[in-house]
Design a protein around this nucleic acid. Structure first.
Lengths: 164, 164
DNA sequence: CAGTATCCAAGCAGATACTG
DNA sequence: CAGTATCTGCTTGGATACTG
C-alpha cells in the first residue's frame, strides 16, 4: 500500500521561539496545513460537495466526477475516511455494495468551505482582471526587452568591421 | 521562465448538461479550483498570513518562512501578485529594495481563510482521534491478514509430504 | 538585495492488469 | 462491483550558480 501523509508533517511540535510574527503561522499552520492539503486536493472538494447532497456508491462517485481514475478516487476516499470526514459502509451482498456519506464533521467542513467558494465567486472577476493586467504588463516588458536586445545587436554589428 | 497555471484549468467553459448533482461542482469549481490551488499551496498561506500584519521585503519573508527556497518564494509571490492578492513595490535604490504587501482583496481573502483555520482548530482533536482510530483498525486488519496467511501456510505445509 | 536560469531527484497521478 | 498492485511519465520543488 502506497501512502504518504504519515510522516509528512514537516516541522511541528512546540518551537520554543515564538519570536515575531510567526505565532500562529508555525503553530497553527502545521495543523491547518494537513486539513488544507486535504481540502484543497483536486478531488476531495468534489467528493465532499457531491456527498453533501446524498450518500453515494463508489461507482456513482466515479461517474459523477468524470476525470477521476479509480486509483485517485480510492485514495481520496481513504484519506477523507481516515480524517473522519466521510464514512464508508460495506454491505456484504453479492455483488458488493459500498456507500460513502459525509460524517457530521464532514458536513460542518463543507459549510465552512462554502465561505471560500462564496469569496471566490464574489472575486473571480477581480482576479481575472488582475491576471489579465499582469499578463499584459508581462507581455509588454517582454517585448520591450526584445526590442532592446535587437538594438544592442544592431549596434554591435555596425561597430564591427564587415567580415567578407 | 517556467510556468504552469495557464493551461491547467482542465474542463471549464459551459457544459450544457447540468444533469444531476453537479451543478456548482462543475461550474463553480473550475473557478474555485484555481483559487484553492493558490490558497492551499505550501507557502501562499504563510505569505498571506505574514503580510497581513505588515508589508515585508523579500528577504524578511525568506527569513520568516524558514523552509522556503528563494525559487519557491519568488514563484509564490509572483502567483499572488498575478492574482491581485499581493502588491509588489520596487524602490529604485542601491541596493534594490522590494516591498510586498497585501492588497485589499488579499486582506478579505485572509479573513475568509481564517474561517477555515478556526474550523481546523476546533476540529483538530476530532481529526487526530479519527486518524488514530483508523490507523488502529488498519493495523489490526493487517495483523489479522498476516495471521491468516501464516495459518494457510502452515496448513499447506502440513498437507505436503516432508521433503528430505 | 532580489532575483533568474539550470539541473536533478522524489513524489504524484494516470493507465493497465488482476482479484474477492 | 469495488477495489489492489505495478509500472511509468510528468510535474513539483530543492540545490546551486549566476546577474542587474
Amino acid at each position: 500500500m502506497e501512502d504518504g501523509t504519515f510522516e509528512s508533517l514537516g516541522y511541528c511540535g512546540d518551537t520554543g521561539i515564538d519570536d515575531d510574527v510567526l505565532q500562529w503561522d508555525q503553530r497553527a499552520d502545521c495543523e491547518v496545513r494537513q486539513i488544507l492539503d486535504r481540502v484543497a486536493d483536486k478531488w476531495s472538494l468534489l467528493v465532499i460537495a457531491l456527498l453533501d447532497k446524498r450518500s453515494l456508491r463508489f461507482t456513482e462517485l466515479r461517474r459523477a466526477i468524470d476525470g477521476v481514475s479509480q486509483r485517485m478516487l480510492t485514495r481520496t476516499l481513504r484519506h477523507l475516511e481516515r480524517d473522519g470526514l466521510v464514512s464508508r459502509t460495506v454491505h456484504p451482498t453479492v455483488p458488493p455494495r459500498v456507500d460513502y456519506e459525509l460524517t457530521p464533521m464532514g458536513v460542518t467542513l463543507h459549510s465552512t468551505i462554502r465561505a471560500l467558494v462564496v469569496w471566490t465567486e464574489e472575486h473571480q472577476n477581480a482576479i481575472a482582471a488582475a491576471r489579465a493586467a499582469y499578463d499584459r504588463r508581462a507581455a509588454a516588458e517582454q517585448e520591450a526587452a526584445e526590442r532592446d536586445e535587437a538594438q544592442r545587436l544592431a549596434v554591435a554589428r555596425a561597430a564591427l568591421p564587415i567580415r567578407s
